[in-house]
Amino acid sequence: MANQQINSGNPRVDLEYRRKKNAEEMRYQVVSFTLMIFLTLVAFAAVAIEGFTAWFTVPFIILLAFVQVVFQLFYFMHMSHKGHEAPSLFLFSGLGFGLVMVLAFMTIVWW
């Protein structure tokens, strides 16, 4: 799905190819949106339906959130396209620092 620059030497053909590519990518976006809605529904249902213990529900909904964020980043924010090496470095180092921070606060802060 990399959005590469194409060059056949014929501008008309290139243009049509690109429009098709864009339309095809938009279909993928709609599919990922549908999946995101589905993941959201599952997460809300897991909480709404009685009978699951917190030991199951909490890790489960956090996992769903991470999956949904991957869709958001890689499809909606185009991180699956090439030319996103630096953005990946920035975002994932931010996320790395962030996770350490969450871990630290949850273990050393008490009231």
Binding site: A86, L95, F97, M101, V109, W111
Partner: peptide
């Protein structure tokens, strides 16, 4: 712009993570 904005989003990630950490602790 593209590069600079992604750097900013990396910073925003840290910022929101620290707020999440605070919320979870409190």
């Amino acid at each position: 712009k593209f590069l600079g904005f992604w750097l900013f989003l990396g910073g925003e990630t840290v910022l929101f993570a620290s707020l999440f950490a605070t919320y979870l602790a409190l």
